[in-house]
Amino acid sequence: MKAIILFISTVILSTCSNNTKKLELSTLFEKELKVISINNSDVSDLDLTLMLQNNEKSITGFAGCNRFFGTYSIDGNAVAFSKVGATKIYCSDARISENEKLFLNSLSKVSSYKPTKSESIELLNEKNKVLITLKY
């Protein structure tokens, strides 16, 4: 009888447990990540992207009007982007231009990341505020 109760308890507990795997940022190397929000504002229609390049520890992507580049470092869940620069193509759309500036400025404030259950990753500042959400 004790064995049956133990078995049922184990099944119930395993069913209730969180089955999401911990996502390592390194599994996303060389994959184009889509920016879906900046400061909780939806920008999924702007086709902004970010790619982590493993060999050079560099980032590249599209910020709205311009391509950007920079470097990154990862230590556990801590991540930092530095030396971020971009091409200087004129952007006539005010919304795109403002979101591009916000995106590039937000990258420099990122201090950690957190995976979500919806195949996305949140980039957080030092106060754990979500700055950028990426879809992989």
Rank of each mutant, 00 (worst) to 15 (best):
Lys135Asp: 15
Leu23Ala: 03
Tyr136Asn: 11
Ser58Val: 00
Tyr72Pro: 05
Ser17Gly: 04
Phe62Ser: 00
Glu98Asp: 06
Ala80Lys: 14
Asn55Lys: 12
Leu23Pro: 05
Ile8Val: 04
Ser26Arg: 12
Glu56Gln: 01
Gly61Thr: 01
Val35Thr: 15
Arg95Trp: 12
Val43Arg: 08
Leu33Ala: 13
Glu32Trp: 10
Glu126Asn: 12
Thr20Phe: 07
Ser111Asp: 11
Lys109Ser: 08
Glu24Ala: 08
Cys91Ile: 12
Thr10Ser: 13
Ile96His: 14
Ser17Phe: 04
Asp93Met: 15
Glu24Asp: 11
Ile59Arg: 00
Ile74Pro: 00
Ala63Gly: 00
Ser26Asp: 13
Val110Lys: 07
Ile38Ala: 05
Cys91Trp: 07
Tyr90Phe: 09
Glu56Asp: 02
Ser44Ile: 02
Val11Met: 08
Thr133Ile: 14
Ser14Asn: 07
Ala78Met: 10
Asn19Met: 11
Tyr136Cys: 13
Met1Trp: 13
Lys57Gln: 00
Phe29Trp: 09
Glu119Met: 14
Glu126Pro: 08
Thr133Lys: 06
Cys91Leu: 07
Ala94Arg: 14
Ser41Trp: 04
Ile38Asp: 01
Ile89Gly: 10
Met51Ser: 07
Gly76Asp: 01
Asp45Phe: 14
Asn128Cys: 06
Glu32Phe: 10
Val79Cys: 12
Asn99Trp: 08
Ile74Glu: 02
Tyr113His: 11
Glu24Ile: 07
Gln53Asn: 09
Ile59Ser: 01
Leu33Tyr: 14
Asn19Tyr: 13
Ser111Cys: 08
Ala94Tyr: 15
Val43His: 06
Ile89Lys: 11
Ala63Cys: 01
Ala86Gln: 13
Asn66Thr: 00
Thr49Trp: 03
Val79Met: 15
Thr87Arg: 05
Phe68Arg: 05
Arg67Lys: 00
Tyr136Gly: 09
Leu33Ser: 08
Leu107Lys: 05
Ile74Val: 09
Pro115Lys: 03
Leu134Phe: 05
Leu13Phe: 06
Ser58Phe: 02
Tyr136His: 14
Cys65Gln: 02
Thr20Asn: 06
Lys114Met: 12
Asn40His: 12
Glu24Gln: 09
Glu100Arg: 15
Ser17Met: 04
Lys31Asn: 11
Thr60Ala: 04
Asn55Pro: 07
Asp45Leu: 09
Phe62Ile: 00
